[in-house]
Each structure stands twice: as structure tokens, then as C-alpha cells.
Design a protein around this nucleic acid. Structure first.
Lengths: 229, 229
DNA sequence: ATAGTTAGCGTATTTTTTACGCTAACTATT
DNA sequence: AATAGTTAGCGTAAAAAATACGCTAACTAT
């Protein structure tokens, strides 16, 4: 067993579920494939792994290529490997998922313009490969993770109101939360820092703006703190 | 992009962290490698993926080969892929972890006798490849999972006392729990079913024997129940 | 000036978690 | 047969966390 080539080698792609939140709904970025197989169908962005890059670097490369921005949150999701998931042969997919703020980038223009689009997670098309499975897994993971890790912040602008944060969590978790208790919980958590500024210009009382206090969060985690919605 | 062979293909192994609990401590099953690289070092059991089997089937094959028994709990852990993790070339490892009851099998005799052994998770040797990382990830996952899914039952005999269950959780989570509150919580959970029998023969009051009520657990999960230690 | 709206604070109630006392039931010893 | 030693099982009080919801403040639009 000294030589690797004695064993059959599968192909390996890295695919990346990219979540974005526009203030109203949670969406994922999909690509309309030009090539066979599944030409004309929507798929999760992905590509073949380079032999000299780490899995995470590969996911980051795919993300940056498609969105032009780096994600603050990029995490391995699952490796999908059913023998028949790609008609060309045995292809494993190491899937990642990322959270980005779609306000910070524009879908790249030019030849890609019609080939990339956001789809709300409630209105997904039929996808190529086993990507519907991948997306389902990603949404479940995001929901589970959101309840015990403050990952939602990656999806918002650096400064946000508590109501915006609550809307986001209600959207991710698909639940209704009490406005006042949510406010209290966030204040007590110690991981949001008031900026002293307000958001004026809307037709009601101007809400205070906060930012995520990452240093404080890391401190709290070290001393055994567990975030909880 | 119609042909897979245009892209370089890594080798892929499936490696399996096998957890066992003997009533006193939580251990993992390790293999002493005979071949290079890392000959003479302890490693997690694993092998190259066959091109016509699913990842899970491959993990199950490895598990069955090494222990002779099937696991009730087998779950994908993470895919490890640092470019230099195997000196022979690019090798990805899709890692799984399994929970088994070591009382139900004996380490296979014969040529394997000195090559397979249980190591308590607190006394791990230095491992070949990046298997120390794999094990660290597996232990963290087991601890996290144990608090919100009743996976501990896989490690015990079908009939167990509440104290045995508590000892196991204390061992997995590395905490001390109050005996009376733990008892109360398990009774209230509805997922342990009294057998009506007691374990006699020990030098104190005979404790009642319970079994895991998987059907009831599945019912509860369907209606939104969340297990919680 | 006033109406409409969401923000922010507070409080009472319910539920869950924690701490811990007491008796029961078994075995081993005398 | 009585008694001591041990863990099992049940109960209760106190503390903490989650929930429900009222009230006033501060902004914009008319």
C-alpha cells in the first residue's frame, strides 16, 4: 500500500451555498449552468479542487469569483458522495456555506449577468446534480447554528438596529419573536455595542444603532458563555 | 468541461473514529499501522473509498472490518484536506464517527491482536497523519451532540440503570451532574422506558433497569421535542 | 398641534433549573 | 436476626430564566 495510484481516484468539487439577506428575505445565490451535464439548470456555485489548495481556500476562491467579496463566515457543511450524483463519473462534493451581505456587492456584469441570481429560500427552483439536497442540508444547518452562535451578524450591515436583527432571526428561524423580550435578551447578552447613533428619516421613532462586539463575544466564549436565541 | 479527467484527482480515504464506553471511561479504537507512511504509529481505522460505494457504506465497511459489529450510530464528522496531510500525495479524508458498545465484541484475534487497541480519550498517543486533529474534532462533536441528542444510549447495554446513563454523560461531557435532578430529568423526558426489572447482586439497593424508547423518541421529535441534558 | 407608528423600558407570571433533605431497599457483617 | 453501610428513589424550596404584555417616548406625516 505504498502507492496511491493503486486505488481508484474520484473527482472532487468544492461547492458553496451562499446565503444573503436583503432586509426582507433570506436568499441563496445560484448559477445557471452553461455546460453539460445539467446545462440550463440552476446549481450551487462550485468548481474542481486544485491539488495544491486547502478545501477552505478552494471554497473561498469560488465565493470570491462569484461575488467579488470575501465572506466573514465560511464553514464546511458536508461531503456529498452518492456514486451516481454526477453522470460523468464518481464526483465527491465537499460543500461549504457562507453568509454575506448582498448590499456590499453587485452581481458581476457582462457575460454572467443572466447566469447568476438570488433565490429566496422559500422559492427554490429544481436544481441540477443533488444540489437540492445540499441546499436543504445548508438551511437546516444555518437554522440550527443560528440558535446557539451569533452568526446572523455577518448578514447585516456593520451598524444595525435591534429590530433589523430580530427580523433577520425571525426570517432564518421562521418564527415570531416578542419584540421586547428580544431587545432585552440582546442587551443582556453583552455582544452588541451601542454606537450612540440613531437611524433618522423613517416615519417613526428613530431607533438606536448597534454593532456586533466581536472582541467581547470572544472573551465571553472563553469564559464559557453560550449564545442563545 | 465535459470530461472529468481534465482535472486532477486526489485520492480519498474514509476514516472512522470509533468510540466505546466500558462503564468507566470513554475510549477510541486505534490501529497500529504496519505500512509506510507512519508505520508503527497509531491511527484511526480507515481505507480508500471504493468507487461504487457511498461514503457511509465505506465507513460502515471499515467499522465492520475492524470491530466485527455494526454501529447503531454512524455519522459524518468532517472532511480533512490539507494538501500535505499525507506524504504520498494529495489525499482527502472523509471522517466519520461511530458509537459502539465494546462489550458486544472482542478485538479480533490472530494477526491483528497487537495492532488494535482501545485508548481512553484522556490518554491518547501521538497519531499518524493529522489524526490528532481528527480525534479532537470528533470529541468536540460528540460532546456537543450529546447535550441535545440522546446518542449516549448507543454506548450502553440495551438495559441500563439511570446511574449508568449518568456516569456515561458525566464521562462524555466531563462534568458532574446532580444524581437526583438527572433522574428526574430522564423520567420526565419520556424516552426511557422502565423494564420492571432490577439489577440485583450489588452491595446496595437494587436499581431499576430501563431501556431507550426509540419509537417514543421518534414520536416526540416529530412533535418538536428537543432532548436536552 | 395632532395622529400614527415603532422604540425602549418595566413588571408580573409561568416555567425551568438548581440545591439538597429524607426514607427505601439492597448487601455485608456481626 | 439485627445492624451498619451504601446507593436508589422521591420530594420540596429557592433561584433563575423565559414569557406575556402594559405603558410612555420619540420620531414623521398631515
Amino acid at each position: 500500500m505504498h502507492t496511491l495510484s493503486a486505488y481508484p481516484q474520484p473527482s472532487v468539487t468544492v461547492d458553496c451555498v451562499i446565503f444573503g439577506y436583503d432586509g426582507k428575505q433570506l436568499s441563496v445565490l445560484l448559477l445557471n449552468r452553461k455546460e453539460e451535464p445539467y446545462a440550463g439548470m440552476w446549481t450551487i456555485p462550485g468548481g474542481f479542487l486544485y491539488l495544491d489548495e486547502t478545501l477552505e481556500a478552494s471554497a473561498d476562491r469560488i465565493l470570491t469569483t462569484k461575488t467579488g467579496i470575501a465572506s466573514l463566515f465560511l464553514e464546511q457543511l458536508f461531503t456529498f458522495g452518492k456514486p451516481d450524483r454526477d453522470p460523468r463519473g464518481r464526483v465527491l462534493s465537499v460543500a461549504y456555506y457562507a453568509l454575506i451581505n448582498p448590499e456590499r456587492f453587485e452581481l458581476s456584469a457582462g457575460n454572467m449577468a443572466n447566469d447568476v441570481n438570488w433565490f429566496p429560500i422559500g422559492q427554490l427552483p429544481e436544481l441540477g446534480f443533488d444540489h437540492n439536497d445540499v441546499l436543504k442540508t445548508a438551511i437546516q444547518r444555518l437554522q440550527a447554528k443560528a440558535t446557539y452562535q451569533p452568526i446572523g451578524f455577518e448578514l447585516l450591515n456593520p451598524q444595525f438596529t435591534i429590530s433589523e436583527l430580530q427580523d433577520l432571526y425571525e426570517c432564518i428561524l421562521d418564527v415570531k419573536l416578542d419584540r421586547r423580550n428580544f431587545h432585552k435578551k440582546m442587551m443582556a447578552s453583552g455582544i452588541v455595542r451601542p454606537t450612540g447613533q440613531k437611524r433618522l428619516g423613517e416615519k417613526n421613532r428613530a431607533p438606536e444603532l448597534f454593532e456586533f462586539d466581536r472582541e467581547q463575544y470572544n472573551e465571553l466564549v472563553k469564559s464559557g458563555f453560550q449564545f442563545k436565541i
